[in-house]
Design a protein around this nucleic acid. Structure first.
Lengths: 208, 208, 208, 208
DNA sequence: GATGAATGAGTATTCATTCAT
DNA sequence: AATGAATGAATACTCATTCAT
């Protein structure tokens, strides 16, 4: 019983297993982005990953589990990006631009994930956390800050505003991720920033 | 075989046929709104309409044809509403409010259609005319007008702006149609109007 | 709309449906008797019945449902036979012979059902009523009568006796149904009767 | 590579191998008793034995081989017990009681084996030696003896009697082994003995 | 035109078994 | 000898669609 060789053998197996799992995840991302959850079979994913059909189930309980893992990863990546910039400045105008930059950056690097997250099939029965609802909650924080600072006119309802904001983000980013040649990245960032800034007042509103 | 009675029988038959077709359409709207395209079978629709399974195919070529017909009708209804108000005034501020009113009104009266149009399953492979793209084209007209009138800052890209606008509309309206008690109708209208107006300048920008 | 022709059309469809269902049941009996629940696929049954694989599910929810229906029918037939003779006489010796006759008669006419009921696969998770337990309950009635009449020696425990009785019946009948040339029918009846009678006393035991 | 140490290593290896094999057998007994042949996978058995899935096939050709080995062992143990008492006395009444005692004793000590042998799944296609047939052969010996000694009435057919006897034994013992609190062990023994004895005459029948 | 029984291709999932390490 | 990842044939079940009545 050579400990060294035993360990390396074990590690080799683990590495192979992890690699197969990673290939399945990657194939899932690619194919789900193209065809959606219902348009793709587990056989498709296995074939795309270069493994037998049964191998899929050595790594995931079922098709929904793979889909959920992908969306969870996507969500974690996205929120991580946004969190990373949220505390970096107290200047509201800068903060808005940084958020837009982070969002667009994530979209550029994870076009498949964006298409999966913000497109049709993010079925509530499969995806545990509703992506847009989560982003709405994040938008609420922005919204409350604006209300506190009296930068948002009274006629704008906070809940409706949150939905509007995420609808805008999701649509723009999904549209751009489908074909990034539709607009230069900087233009997308700048436009998102400007729209949001113009929707608010540069100076606090005077009390009526 | 009296010719007169044959003619009247034929007319009665046509009426009955049209009624069956209408019931199938109505059932499709209701069920697709609840469960989406993939969650509903042709048997479900036929049963809900009170006809036999085979009858479905006397009226529609396949499931996608019914879905497409529903979305086409929805789209026609929606664009009809928007067209009806688009020429009624030259005051930009009033025009924006009228558009929002028309959109929200349509959503209130056609909650099922809104859920079908703006939710998950409006799969591009099934719905030939992409609803959102059509709305984007409409938004482009607004956008061009704004650009012409120099009411939109240069940093806002027209294409991106169009996507942002329809993303906002679709999300807000779908969110509200799911549960109209989430906000009073007037608040939704007012908020949509305000956001759009604040994204633009009340007076033309001065030339640089 | 001719009521007569409509009715006859409907009846023809119902007849066809009933015939298909009956063929599936019959095929199920034959094949389950040969191979057991696990040894037979729904495709096997459909093919044996001369219908497509999917047709199976137009008539039964799943494989277990067909199996259960068969066993329920078998049980109903068997208990019906036994009930029919149970009240016909108050003479215990005659009653025992009549029961044996009924049991063997049922076995002769329903060899497949006997093999299904008393053989391997009558899985408790599939068959709702445990056949042998049900027969044990029936045997309890006999047993109580015997105890009351003091025809059974004290050393024979009533519960154990009931199990022994049904074990005997089930085994003998299943063995004989597999190949009825193993013994003449009358010999089986007579032997079952004699064993049971000899296990009891012709006259009530004297009080100790 | 010291010859001595090589030899001792080899012996140690053999011991380890035997231990693994024994654990697999033990796990098979436990799990088959609980869930039957079809309800248990080779992975289940390997996991229960604390070895990898592939290890199973280092010791058994396939799942059926393990099952067969278990049933063969069970059968050997049971027949060994019965053989051990069969020659110990020439007193028929004592012999019957000793057989019952041996059978019930085996059941008490090997509840898993009894459940495997006498329950549903002892599929004839898997278990080569049919347990019940073997017991029937043993019963035949008893039967012939009784016939020779004229203690069995002519109406009782020897073959049917043999089936009845083993049906009784198997059912009673399986029923009791499932839950030994259902009756005291002595009561089971006594009842089996009494039933068998009452099926025969204490004194030889008079020639007709 | 309506009916509804039948169809059969499609799909997710299981599991006994193999084999490179 | 043990490992455990991979295999792929097998199988239950679904559902859009057809067609004889």
């Amino acid at each position: 019983m050579n400990t060294g060789s035993t360990a390396s053998r074990s590690t080799a197996g683990e590495r192979a297993r992890a690699a197969t799992r990673a290939r399945l995840l990657e194939s899932g991302k690619t194919l789900f982005a193209e065809q959606g959850l219902h348009g793709i079979t587990t056989h498709d994913i296995a074939a795309h990953a270069g493994v037998a059909a049964g191998t899929f189930y050595n790594h995931f309980n079922d098709k929904a589990a793979l889909f959920r893992e992908i969306t969870d990863q996507a969500l974690a990546g996205l929120t991580g990006r946004l969190d990373a910039v949220s505390d970096s400045t107290r200047d509201y105008r800068k903060a808005v631009r940084l958020q837009a930059t982070a969002l667009v950056g994530f979209a550029a690097e994870n076009r498949d994930l964006i298409r999966i997250l913000f497109s049709r099939e993010s079925d509530a029965t499969v995806v545990q956390t509703d992506v847009l609802q989560l982003m709405a909650n994040r938008a609420s924080i922005v919204r409350r800050q604006l209300v506190d600072e009296r930068r948002m006119p009274a006629e704008i309802d906070p809940d409706v505003f949150a939905q509007a904001l995420i609808g805008m983000w999701a649509r723009v980013v999904a549209w751009w991720a489908e074909d990034t040649s539709r607009a230069p990245r900087e233009v997308v960032i700048e436009t998102l920033t400007q729209i949001q800034l113009h929707g608010t007042h540069p100076e606090p509103l005077k009390p009526r």
